[in-house]
Amino acid sequence: MRADRIRLPHAAARAAALTLALWLSPATAADAPAADVAPTVAADPRLEADVQELAHKLRCLVCQNQSIAESNAPLALDLRNQVREQLAAGRSKEDVVDYLVARYGDFVLYEPPLKGVTLLLWGGPAVLLLAGVGWLAWRVRRRAVESAAVAALSEAEHARARALLAGAGPADVPPSSESRESRS
């Protein structure tokens, strides 16, 4: 058994370890109640469309990476029913969202609201993009200046280069005293 585990490919072993860690993590020890009722659907298709629209924007607390529309966890089912019931009772979408946020916090929203603590979340990508563009512009400018400096050859260097290109051996061409770097 032990030898088998060692021979496992790296990725598989890590996936297994991660699964094990998740399985053993204390919060998963909390039981999620099982599904009870079959998914109900509102008779009015317009209302049901609203329910679905809203359900896709709300996060399932149990599975976390699914919306309550996608999840089959019993809590998602309960919350979907709550949404449907409240919309049917004539409450607005905002009311229903507020109702859930009051109980489960902003976490229940897939799209976090823009406020003080989420400023970095919303502004971070733009800041990173600007920083990246700024850095790139600075580099490009600097490189242009550097290569301009390199390109500037003196008259003597030009003459020597011409002589070399014309086929004269290096011995025939005395190194220029202005030569910027010695290659010998």
Binding site: A30, D31, L75, L79, Q82, R103, G105
Partner: peptide, 9 residues
């Protein structure tokens, strides 16, 4: 739900 329960206990 009113208490924001999402798992037991």
């Amino acid at each position: 739900i009113d208490f924001g329960v999402y798992g037991v206990p």
